[in-house]
Design a protein around this nucleic acid. Structure first.
Length: 208
DNA sequence: TGCCAGGCCCTCTTTAGGGCCTT
């Protein structure tokens, strides 16, 4: 992998977990990710993982991932070691990225691995671009933008696939308004970090 | 059995509070 390849490539990822907080003992139970290179999905990663304890009925109902499905899945450490290799050198995207970043950090810390990419958040960008959307949940944005999907939600690969489609659509919408110039990830990362009050001025500056 | 977090962002704000979003 060259530096230019990494600059044009992002990994869109999504975790399914036992709860909301790794600080409260929650663990990842599934990771899904797609690799986008210049607007094309070139690779995928999906793996269930055994957290070492039973998931609640709420999580099983929410995700469809049951304790039976996890019983013979490899341990988190093994899966996350493979995933660290998958994301090495690439920038990262997730919907509500602060959530996925917390679990990625916690799971990689536990095995002494790390990553060198930076995160951008598709939810924060969507809040800027699609202010008329009913809300900015991933499923709502998929419906609002009429994004093709197979009806599967709250599974890691399905959600990462839909987030990837949303990401590419937002890039196209920005390009069609002549609001962005390359490098795309840097612009999107700034949009997902810049306070709303300054976004309008930023976009106008991009359009000039 | 039931509950837990945290970052972003808006507003009836900034010495704060609460909704959104993720599982």
């Amino acid at each position: 992998m060259t530096t230019s390849q990494a600059a044009n490539t992002v990994i869109v990822l999504d975790f399914e977990t036992t709860g909301l907080s790794p600080n409260m003992g929650d663990r990842a139970i599934e990771i899904g990710a797609v690799k986008i290179d210049n607007g094309i999905v070139v690779d995928r990663f999906q793996q269930l993982m055994n957290p070492g304890f039973k998931v609640s009925s709420f999580i099983a109902g929410y995700t469809g991932i049951t304790n039976q499905m996890l019983q013979h899945a490899p341990a988190c450490d093994e899966v996350m070691d493979q995933f660290a290799d998958f994301i090495a050198g690439y920038n990262l995207v997730a919907h509500n990225a602060s959530f996925d970043q917390r679990f990625l950090d916690a799971e990689l810390d536990s095995i002494g691995r790390s990553y060198d990419g930076q995160f951008a958040c598709s939810m924060l960008i969507a809040r800027r671009l699609y202010q008329q959307a009913p809300n900015h949940k991933l499923g709502s944005l998929v419906a609002y933008k009429d994004i093709d999907n197979d009806g599967v939600f709250h599974r890691a690969l399905a959600d990462s696939e839909m987030t990837a489609k949303l990401w590419l659509l937002m890039l196209e919408d920005l390009k069609s308004d002549h609001r962005i110039t390359m490098p795309e990830f840097s612009v999107m990362q700034k949009l997902s970090r810049t306070a709303k009050a300054s976004v309008t001025a930023y976009l106008k500056k991009q359009a000039c």
